[in-house]
Design a protein around this nucleic acid. Sequence first.
DNA 1: AGTACTTTTGTACTCATTACAAATATGTAC
DNA 2: GTACATATTTGTAATGAGTACAAAAGTACT
Lengths: 144, 144
Amino acid sequence: MLITANPIEHLQSHGIKPSPQRIAVMDYLLNSRMHPTADEIYLALSPSMPTLSKTTVYNTLKLLVEAGAVLNISIDEKNARYDGDTRPHAHFRCLKCGAVLDLYPEQVPYLEQIDRQQLGRLRIVQTRLYYIGYCEQCQEHTSN
Amino acid sequence: MLITANPIEHLQSHGIKPSPQRIAVMDYLLNSRMHPTADEIYLALSPSMPTLSKTTVYNTLKLLVEAGAVLNISIDEKNARYDGDTRPHAHFRCLKCGAVLDLYPEQVPYLEQIDRQQLGRLRIVQTRLYYIGYCEQCQEHTSN
DNA sequence: AGTACTTTTGTACTCATTACAAATATGTAC
DNA sequence: GTACATATTTGTAATGAGTACAAAAGTACT
């Protein structure tokens, strides 16, 4: 479970006016640990919000990322993924099944230090730490 | 300057048969610190190799990455970038000018530890550490 | 110089994402 | 509440990175 359960408050605390579409996208991201793509979000919300447009999903995600309410994950070369959990954490992608998993500071020694690093005169806005390999299940089933 | 100056040896040491096109791409990556995109590589090599096809650049890059001779950098959402330096190091991208810079272990405390981490039963093949923000020059010229 | 295999090339295609302009909703002043 | 300005959403068309595919060119081996 995440810190903020309420999508409306989460939007407002990041200075975003909560429209029904924005609430739906934010709510979906706050309650998913699947790191969905824009298309997956659209497909998930369409049934209960039939007039929703894919463009709105893209626009909303852009807005949320720029406001810092959501993280953009570039671990998957094919397409962008999104994460409603903005606390510092790393991600792992399985080369076989494609799953993207969260790795929290308890599981990744030095993650906190790496995340809040001062690097010379660079002004760091965001840190991304990605691990790529084979998850437990995918190691069992293959020689790869 | 990099460890291996010779593109042919570098290819062979990764089990890749050196064709003229592969040598050209490898040579370009070994002597560039710009982290070029496939298109930038194509444009750079075209003049001296007029028959070169963009498909060949893509094919070659895929081959080089799979053989571990080159790194794929996913820090730039728009398109993939490539790095001929396969030693462990992090990358920084400037949100204003778009430059992608190398950050070596001397500049990033804990990078070595983060890179060779054992994470439970996950089998890690590659670690990617990206910092995003504003470079020195771009901070000077704006309020951002 | 002939056959099998590898590599390169060009064209056509896919598909994530964006541009754009019309339509709808929301807020505010009278 | 109704008219006007502004913000948001929507659908369609375009963009552009990357891939599929099959023909052409190159290489190796006999």
